[in-house]
Design a protein around this nucleic acid. Sequence first.
RNA 1: GGCCCCAUGGUCAAGUGGUUAAGACGUCGCGUUCUCAGCGCGGAAUCGAGGGUUCGACUCCCUCUGGGGCUACCA
Length: 499
Amino acid sequence: MTEEIRVRYAPSPTGHLHIGNARTAIFNWLFARHYNGKFIIRIEDTDQKRNIADGETSQLDNLKWLGLDWDEAPDFSGEYGPYRQSERNEQGIYQEYIEALLEKGLAYKSYKTSEQLAAEREAQQAAKQAPHYVYEYEGLSNAEREAKYADFEAQGLKPVVRFRVPEDKVYAWDDIVKGHIEIGAKEVGGDWVIQKADGMPTYNFAVVVDDHLMAISHVLRGDDHVSNTPKQMMIYEALGWAIPKFGHMALIINGATGKKLSKRDEDVLQFVEQYRELGYLPQAMFNFIGLLGWSPKGEDEIFSVEEFIQMFDETRLSKANAKFDQKKLEWINNQWMRRDKDKVMPQLIGELVKADLISQQDADQKVEWLKSVIDVAGVDGIAYTQEIVDITRRPFFELREPLTDEMIEYLTSEEGRKVFAAWQTAYEALPLTATAADYMGAIRGIQNELEIKGRNLWNPIRIATTHEVQGPNLPEMLVLLDKQNVLQTMADVKAKYLD
RNA sequence: GGCCCCAUGGUCAAGUGGUUAAGACGUCGCGUUCUCAGCGCGGAAUCGAGGGUUCGACUCCCUCUGGGGCUACCA
């Protein structure tokens, strides 16, 4: 490739950053970074009704969080700005080309009302025809058409501008991911709107003007844009512009519904922000998304962003839709948490504070203790940082109360009582400086003395000290627990269940 | 309905005419162990169907089936 690679991610600020959008952004970014090209962000905010206030900032913020950066964007304009379509519209950029098309007779003004349009469509459907726009000025001369315009204007109607589709043509391109595709012009549904009644350009028109003016070389986007491509090619052709290379990536699908992941699917967390809040790591999200619809050469699964850049190869993009696999995401995140344990530690501690298990002040003072607690509880088995709360809550921060029937049974059985008594004595006798090995020694001592082992030995001890029958390695936990508290806990258990 | 795309285990997928059809997630079993997690070992599980082409098809072609996308004054 000789010309400069310039790709873009062009979100509309109608919501927060969705997994599907994030993937489009990531692959475009990888494409740019791998080939030393430019990555541009353009905001497509031509639907004023659907724009939401923090849509743009939220999208950019989450993109940044994922580790992306950009060469040109609304917040630090490059030489092809502005990068917001609303601003470009204000500058008359689209208007200029709409007028050019109007002048050449390649587009025209249409005054049909939405009621008329709906009626036409209904009639067509009733007649089992594909919905299709009906050109209203057939056979009229320019002057006659202008006269009609004036008529409609006099009635106070606002026009849209429609592109006159050359229906006998076939639009074909070699798609970067799907290969050769061709679609007949008559399939686009007739003359389509390029400028809305409010003066805003439509997506399919603006995207062409902007991609051309911004010198975009490759357009990598979702499969759902395939049928837009012929419309866009018409505009390139009508304006005499070179057509960029297109690549249409397979979509991400909701495993439950089998449909394109939609913002309305509530069974799947699908905003990057939601994962961020649960404590997924950005490099894990990137890793997971980067493997969705793309596969590397070897057998590894865990890659850094740098490795992705280095490995990127657009020919390995998958043509088949991929289901979103939450379990795999969890596994990948787990791998990253373990790999970057030290880096994740502050975040893990933060979760405990957020969950009110400990105050910020105490947390600051007891950092080393917290690290040990987290270490003993085990990061190895959790999917995301927020889960650290559940696995450390008991017995490090609060005891289960009351005991379950199963626990009471372990405790009050004949063997249980013996173990409890022996353990109470042994524990009291151990010094404050006792190590995990010392605790283990004491427990083994009881085992030998009473000839009780396994659960019948361990469960009464666990219950007496932690109110649990399961949890991390007990000797290691005991080191971290406050001796006075544990003694008190044992005394309480004894008074309540054993006396 | 029309047009377009897709099709390897439950999921992500490698594979580009000759392979024992990789690997990962998940799942199941065994082991380690007081339990959970982890770790180790092992197992089950895939080429949607039918026709061709070929000495030989998961790989190429056709048909069918199934799935998905689009079909707006949304992007």
